[in-house]
Design a protein around this nucleic acid. Structure first.
Length: 444
RNA sequence: GGCCCUAUCGUCUAACGGUUAGGACGGAAGCUUCUCAAGCUUUAAAUCCGGGUUCGAUUCCCGGUAGGGUCACCA
């Protein structure tokens, strides 16, 4: 049995989205699972619409997803071969030059049509079983605009045969193209590859994913701070699963377990929320150093940044979000916050508006915190501070919150933030004292 | 409209005739807790409908219905 060869054949006529790349993922995983090869063919036969920047984007996206092609070429490089076979088909009488009345601007007055043998074509699809389609209605379909301008159907058939592609793995939207391609194959005497038509990836409205409907280019997710291993994992699980209850698989594991036979027939909706949650999982598997590097995280205080990583790991779903947090809700770790008196005394019982209780609570924290050493852990801080807060609670003066709220607010300047123990551990006792003293000053 | 494909919780899916129809994401509740986040626990939530076949259908067959794809001198 010959080695498995699959291909991904995008046309560089736009930015490709997750649905397009899911096809690449499956073709890649299938080939690699069987130790075969994966070919990238840029289908640039449409000279008008093909653009170098789109091709560059495809290359970038594939590299990001770590889907390495064993071979890569542009379809236009095979023009001579296409021309030769077109001539052969015409010589054989299987195709002919046809005079046309141009219907649209750009239409040729002469094209090459394939002589349709009529009848029906049946082919086997690994995912769907046998499919039979009548072919008469197609008429003598066009296979080239001229000897040097083959149309998709023709170029695909020739290239797949020449590259010894054994499995044509592509989207379900190609099912109706398959019969005419098989007709061309037969006329050329090529062996028929095995087909596997993947279910489509849909938008929320259940129609084919498309840029027009707001589907992001795959590279946008990269820019948002999605990890390639997360995207790969998520994409692989759209229409496939390993058959057990594992949800997070690495590329190696995917290659090991992937099989076309377990691919679904029904289409799936692309769910960004789930993608983000998968991404969070993969972010959490990173070491703190990797997290900083791969997330391209920067902060004035590198030491504080390092200490803030665990916080980011529990909060951020993407690196973009992590970067925002560093200057947003976690900004207090790097910059002194501005605080207001009214927020500071928010937990003060209504009876005592003089802020006296808050002030004394903060003052009571000064000495114990001062006694802490630099590099103290959040747990150790809690052991010192919590008893003080508990004491307030037993005195019935507003509970722990009477101490913890002003403390946390003095340190963070935020209504919502990590707990004060963690804050002190990251800021260090010295900076913490400084902030608490400023809060006390406001209450004078 | 013709042709083709498809159909399990809101979403991704498991269950190759026999399960209390399982898991994950999301949701809700509780615990924890000064807040947020996380974590832990609990919970709601599905076999499109109708016929067959069978002792027994999510599963096999047929018919509906619904959704999708495709009908270019694009790919």
């Amino acid at each position: 049995m010959s080695a498995v060869v699959t291909r991904f054949a995008p046309s560089p006529t736009g930015l490709l989205h997750a649905g397009n790349y899911r096809t690449a993922v499956f073709a890649y995983l299938f080939a690699k699972h069987y130790d075969g090869s994966f070919i990238l063919r840029i289908e640039d036969t449409d000279r008008e619409r093909s653009k170098p920047e789109y091709e560059a984007n495809i290359l970038e996206a594939l590299a990001w997803l770590t889907l390495a092609a064993d071979k890569q070429y542009r379809q236009s490089e095979h023009r001579a071969r296409h021309r030769a076979l077109l001539e052969k088909l015409i010589a054989d009488g299987a195709a002919y030059v046809s005079k046309e009345i141009p219907k649209n601007p750009g239409d040729k007055e002469e094209v090459i049509r394939f002589k349709n043998p009529k009848g029906a074509v049946t082919f086997a699809d690994v995912i769907r079983g046998e499919i039979t389609m009548g072919v008469s209605d197609l008429g003598d379909f066009i296979i080239a605009r001229s000897l040097d301008e083959p149309i998709f159907h023709f170029a695909v058939v020739v290239d797949d045969a020449d590259e010894h592609v054994t499995h044509v793995i592509r989207g379900e939207d190609h099912i109706s193209n398959t019969p005419r391609q098989i007709l061309i194959q037969r006329a050329l005497g090529f062996v028929e590859p095995i087909y596997g038509h993947l279910p489509l990836i849909l938008c929320n409205d259940r129609t084919k994913l498309s840029k027009r409907k707001g589907a992001k280019a795959l590279t946008e997710y990269r820019d948002l701070g999605i990890l390639p291993e997360a995207m790969l994992n998520y994409l692989a699980f759209l229409g496939w699963n390993p058959g057990d209850e594992r949800e997070y698989l690495s590329q190696d594991e995917l290659v090991k377990d992937f099989d076309l036979l377990r691919v679904h027939k029904g289409s799936a909706i692309f769910d960004e929320t789930k993608l983000f949650s998968v991404n969070q999982h993969w972010m959490r598997t990173l070491s703190d150093a990797e997290f900083i590097m791969r997330g391209q995280l920067v902060a004035q205080d590198e030491e504080a940044l390092r200490k803030a990583i665990p916080l980011l790991k529990e909060r951020a779903h993407t690196f973009g979000e992590a970067r925002e947090m560093l200057s947003g809700e976690l900004g207090c770790l790097f910059m002194e916050p501005t605080i207001t008196r009214s927020k500071l005394v928010e937990k003060e019982p209504a009876a005592a508006q003089q802020a006296g209780m808050t002030k004394s609570a903060l003052e009571g924290l000064l000495e114990p915190i001062k006694a802490l050493s630099e590099g103290v852990t959040a747990k150790a801080v809690k052991e010192v501070v919590m008893p003080l807060a508990d004491a307030e609670e037993t005195k019935g003066k507003g509970g722990r919150g009477g101490v913890l709220w002003p403390l946390r607010y003095a340190l963070s300047g935020q209504e919502r933030s990590p707990d004060p123990f963690t804050l002190i551990a990251i800021l260090g006792p010295k900076e913490s004292i400084s902030r608490i003293q400023k809060a006390i000053a406001i209450l004078e």
